[in-house]
Amino acid sequence: MAWNEWVGLAFIGVGVLFDALGCLGLLRFPDIYNRLQAGTKCVTFGTCGILLGILFHQGITTFGIKALLGIPFLLLTSPVGAHALARGAYKAGIPLWDKSVMDEYTQSESSRAE
């Protein structure tokens, strides 16, 4: 195999590893906000790694360019989704983990459900 295929496979491997770690965090962390942290960060990074690996593996072809196009959109949409879910969960009255240190959001007007 050419060198670029090995680099591509390495990138995909790192991406898959972080995907698995993110899902493990989803299982292990105590409350919804921490789960969102683990899930969003690791899985977004992992999937971006996979797409980047495909770009290296295939080179500048239709296939590779489609993978490259996915990366910015994934980076834009995934945090917005996490942000919306966290806000919705807070408004639905899901409490923080009981070992949480502080919560300054309760003082805010918009933290209550309409």
């Binding site: 995907d19 969102l36 969003t40 899985v43 977004t44 999937t47 996979i50 797409l51 495909i54 879910l85």
Partner: peptide, 26 residues
């Protein structure tokens, strides 16, 4: 346990599916 927990799981499953489809394409 709570409904938002399930929603988070489904959201992350969606992002995983993107990676899955990409590897499957390869």
């Amino acid at each position: 346990k709570t409904i938002p927990d399930r929603m988070v799981a489904i959201d992350i499953l969606g992002t995983l599916a993107v990676g899955f489809a990409a590897v499957w394409a390869l």
